[in-house]
Amino acid sequence: MIKFHEGEFDEIGVSSGYLNSNGDTIIPAEKYYYCYTDTIRNFGIVMENKTGKLLGIDQNGTELYEIFKYDNGPDYLKSGLFRIIKNGKIGYANSNGKIIIEPKFDCAYQFKGEYALVSDNCETIKEGENFIWKSEKWYQITTDGKRVEK
């Protein structure tokens, strides 16, 4: 297990990193702009310094994938899953950081109960500070990634 180490204040932009149970530095405070998780058992969320991307990392600090941003922070856990991004595609991981549904969608909404609305071909349209997705070919998937047939 890795514990969170913070600077003088607990706020975004203040040096923070991770220490192991012996107090040894695993992830130095300067490496990331902000640490969203205070402990890493298997998985943690950090903000990259240069781009502001949210990243999922393991106990060794290996960057696993990008976390989908929602409301200026990491995507919410819904039905046990949150959205991730790899190679420009969206998929889903669980609270332990394990990828449950491989990233393969151009657009993918959060789960509502057992289903999420996804598209393999959609357009992202910016509206002010926000964006909307437009597609003619939406379909639903289950929490194990199976397409729902009508």
Rank of each mutant, 00 (worst) to 15 (best):
E30S: 10
Y65T: 14
L54K: 09
G97W: 03
N96G: 05
Y36D: 12
Y65Q: 08
D75C: 15
L19H: 06
H5S: 05
A93S: 14
Y18I: 02
G13T: 02
L81A: 01
D38I: 00
K89P: 01
D38M: 04
S79L: 10
K104Q: 15
Y32W: 11
V14T: 07
D24T: 07
N94P: 04
E63Y: 00
N96C: 04
T62H: 10
Y32D: 03
I2E: 04
G17Y: 01
D75W: 07
T37M: 05
I27T: 02
G97V: 01
S16Y: 02
N22K: 15
G17T: 02
T25A: 05
G73Q: 13
K50S: 15
E63V: 15
K69N: 10
A93N: 09
G91Q: 12
G17H: 00
T39G: 00
E66M: 04
A29G: 08
S16I: 05
D24Q: 14
K89G: 05
I101K: 09
D75G: 10
G17K: 00
N96T: 10
G80Q: 04
K98P: 00
G13Y: 02
N87E: 15
I101A: 10
I101L: 12
I2M: 08
L19N: 09
T37R: 07
Y33F: 15
D71V: 01
G13E: 02
I57R: 05
K69S: 11
D75N: 15
K98I: 08
G23A: 09
I101P: 02
G61P: 06
I84M: 07
T37N: 15
E30N: 09
S95M: 09
R41N: 13
C35E: 07
F9E: 11
T62C: 06
D58F: 00
N60V: 01
T25L: 07
K104M: 13
K53M: 12
Y32N: 06
G80K: 04
M47T: 13
D10C: 06
I57W: 00
N22H: 11
F82W: 08
L19Q: 07
E11K: 12
F68N: 09
M47Q: 15
S15Y: 09
N96E: 13
R41L: 13
Y34M: 05
S15F: 08
K86Y: 03
G23E: 03
D71Q: 06
L81M: 03
G88S: 06
K53D: 15
Y34K: 08
S21P: 00
E63Q: 14
M47S: 14
L64W: 10
I45C: 14
K78C: 14
Y32S: 05
G73W: 07
S16L: 02
G7P: 02
I45A: 13
G56R: 12
L54Q: 08
S15L: 10
Y34I: 06
G80N: 06
Y92W: 09
Y65M: 14
T37I: 05
L77W: 00
A29P: 06
D71A: 01
